[in-house]
Simulated assay, not measured.
Amino acid sequence: MSNRTINLNDALYHYLLDVSLREHAVLAELRAATLSHPHASMQIAPEQGQFMALLVKMLGARRTLEIGVFTGYSALAVALALPDEGRVIGCDISREYTDVARSYWDRAGVGHKIDLRLAPALETLDALIAQGQEGSFDFAFIDADKTAYDAYYERCLTLLRSGGVIAVDNVLWSGRVIMPGADADTLAIQAFNRKLHQDARIDLSLVPIGDGLTLARKR
């Protein structure tokens, strides 16, 4: 037993993957292809994708949001977990990155489940709210520009139903959240973490998976 989260060295991490990861073949191919990308660190870890897919299934989700798509691994993991009528609305501004994503979504047979909106995410989220879609989504994943996390969170909270979950990536920020002399991104994450700790609208858990994943369940 342990009274705190165990540290994972490389050997233990690979053991974790060996005994638990059930990665779809196209997810594995996409992950391998993204390893050579100049911004490969922006892709989530495979165990995190599997964890989010499990959350989506446990929620019985039908409608989900994703803020920050990159090459599409997390959207693919979620789409594979959704029923055939389920939908992911993905928000990104890069056609270059998301063209890669589309090709793998189609190869996995879930391209029809993902509605990609190439526009600033706040514009897309505000448009959904203006269309009267408040309270109609089950799950949201935020993994984009850190200084806008609070704005994304507030929109997603409005769009989520009671009992829905927002997952927020990079909330431990490679440990920089506890370092002095923080830059703008780190300061934004620090403020965001403190805000959610006191937010009575949600139930909260920060899970030490990947680079830190906050789960916020809308009350």
Results as ranks from 00 to 15, higher is better:
residue 1 M to I: 12
residue 3 N to L: 13
residue 8 L to I: 10
residue 8 L to F: 13
residue 9 N to F: 02
residue 15 Y to S: 06
residue 18 D to F: 12
residue 19 V to P: 00
residue 20 S to C: 10
residue 21 L to E: 00
residue 23 E to D: 02
residue 25 A to T: 15
residue 28 A to Y: 00
residue 28 A to Q: 03
residue 28 A to W: 00
residue 29 E to I: 07
residue 29 E to A: 12
residue 31 R to V: 09
residue 32 A to C: 07
residue 33 A to Q: 03
residue 35 L to Q: 14
residue 37 H to W: 00
residue 38 P to K: 00
residue 42 M to L: 15
residue 43 Q to A: 13
residue 44 I to L: 13
residue 44 I to E: 03
residue 44 I to F: 02
residue 45 A to C: 02
residue 45 A to E: 12
residue 47 E to R: 04
residue 47 E to L: 13
residue 50 Q to C: 02
residue 51 F to G: 04
residue 51 F to N: 03
residue 52 M to L: 15
residue 52 M to H: 14
residue 54 L to M: 15
residue 55 L to M: 11
residue 62 R to N: 13
residue 64 T to Y: 00
residue 64 T to Q: 04
residue 66 E to Y: 02
residue 66 E to I: 06
residue 67 I to P: 03
residue 68 G to C: 06
residue 69 V to N: 02
residue 71 T to N: 03
residue 74 S to C: 06
residue 75 A to C: 06
residue 77 A to Q: 04
residue 84 D to A: 09
residue 85 E to N: 08
residue 85 E to S: 14
residue 89 I to C: 03
residue 91 C to F: 15
residue 91 C to Q: 06
residue 94 S to E: 02
residue 96 E to F: 05
residue 98 T to N: 05
residue 98 T to M: 01
residue 99 D to R: 12
residue 100 V to N: 02
residue 101 A to Y: 07
residue 103 S to E: 15
residue 104 Y to W: 08
residue 104 Y to P: 14
residue 104 Y to C: 08
residue 108 A to K: 06
residue 109 G to W: 04
residue 111 G to P: 06
residue 114 I to T: 09
residue 114 I to W: 03
residue 118 L to S: 07
residue 119 A to R: 14
residue 122 L to R: 10
residue 124 T to M: 00
residue 128 L to D: 11
residue 131 Q to R: 14
residue 131 Q to F: 10
residue 134 E to I: 09
residue 135 G to K: 13
residue 137 F to L: 10
residue 139 F to W: 05
residue 140 A to L: 05
residue 141 F to K: 04
residue 143 D to W: 07
residue 146 K to A: 10
residue 147 T to H: 03
residue 149 Y to T: 11
residue 153 Y to M: 06
residue 155 R to T: 13
residue 155 R to G: 13
residue 156 C to E: 07
residue 158 T to D: 06
residue 159 L to D: 04
residue 159 L to A: 08
residue 160 L to I: 10
residue 170 N to W: 05
residue 171 V to S: 03
residue 171 V to P: 05
residue 176 R to G: 04
residue 177 V to L: 01
residue 179 M to C: 14
residue 180 P to R: 05
residue 182 A to F: 04
residue 183 D to Y: 05
residue 184 A to N: 13
residue 185 D to V: 00
residue 196 L to I: 15
residue 196 L to Y: 05
residue 198 Q to W: 09
residue 199 D to W: 01
residue 201 R to G: 10
residue 202 I to H: 01
residue 202 I to L: 04
residue 203 D to H: 12
residue 203 D to R: 14
residue 205 S to T: 14
residue 205 S to I: 14
residue 206 L to N: 15
residue 207 V to E: 01
residue 210 G to H: 00
residue 210 G to R: 10
residue 215 L to W: 07
residue 215 L to N: 09
residue 219 R to E: 09
residue 219 R to W: 07
